[in-house]
Write a protein that binds this DNA or RNA. Structure first.
Ligand SMILES: [Zn+2]
Ligand SMILES: [Zn+2]
Ligand SMILES: [Zn+2]
Ligand SMILES: [Zn+2]
Lengths: 130, 130
DNA sequence: TTATAAACGCAACAATGTTGCATAATTGTA
DNA sequence: TACAATTATGCAACATTGTTGCGTTTATAA
């Protein structure tokens, strides 16, 4: 039984993710922690926060892993964060959009675990200022 | 007007992708071309094949870009290869699954371009031999 | 056959993520 | 409060994936 510690670095990383309106990459997060810790530590903190289900991990369409807080999960049945993500092709930001329940049509010999639904396009911000 | 050339390397790469049952990463493809060309050339060929709409590009849940042939697009209206992809957590293979038409519920101030739907879980092969 | 632009090889670089190991820090308990 | 146990960190080194510049080669049209 691993004992979870709440270190300054971990608190800081979590706060940064929570306060940001869009999902963030490790690079963006590390740029905001002001050298309170090593970049490897950020990777390890993110790993732990995912395991603790405080944040979720989403891969952007370009292959970069992003992290976002697990706010929207008020209904506890949502173990998997299978809401929709919007990836802006202009500003590259990845935004969590409210749950979209979708009907899948997968052959029964596939065992489904998680659903990743990402839509690319142009976000409201980038549409206003082109 | 760019003239498209059909080189041996390009033909080989395309054949490899076509014959494989699952989507392939650049690393896997390069491992199969038997050093007939440089790895950079493989990247550039893949880029061209995507532009020529002969293959499509899908990012796996771990962030690795994969490529698969555009076979299923017999109905020409499918400009975007918005079918479902299955990502096996055991063998890491990414498989194209027949078109799944889904109803999106995105705020109207987002301009949608492409839809990426990837489901993770265990594929039939890995279920049989656990 | 020749000219031209496309394709290639090579080297170097960049971004992102991982691992091993010695050291530091947190937390429960005495 | 002091201590022990073990979690967390820093640092260096490495791995993987993808990109760029540039000089050379090659496919294709005329
Ligand atoms: Zn945007
Ligand atoms: Zn999300
Ligand atoms: Zn599998
Ligand atoms: Zn596909």
């Amino acid at each position: 039984m691993a004992i979870i510690r709440n270190t300054i670095a971990k608190k800081t990383v979590f706060e940064i993710i929570q306060l940001n309106k869009t999902a963030m990459s490790q690079t963006e997060i590390f740029a905001m922690v002001n050298n309170i810790c090593d970049r490897v530590t950020v990777y390890r903190i993110l790993e732990r926060l995912v395991k603790e289900m405080k944040i979720h991990k989403i891969v952007n369409v370009n292959g970069v892993i992003n992290y976002a807080p697990c706010n929207s999960c008020e209904h506890e049945q949502h173990l998997h964060h299978d809401h929709l993500h919007f990836s802006c092709t202009t500003c590259k930001k990845l935004t969590c959009i409210a749950d979209n329940h979708i009907e899948l049509n997968i052959p029964s010999n596939y065992q489904v675990a998680e659903v990743f639904l990402t839509v690319s396009g142009i976000c409201p911000n980038c549409l206003i200022i082109p």
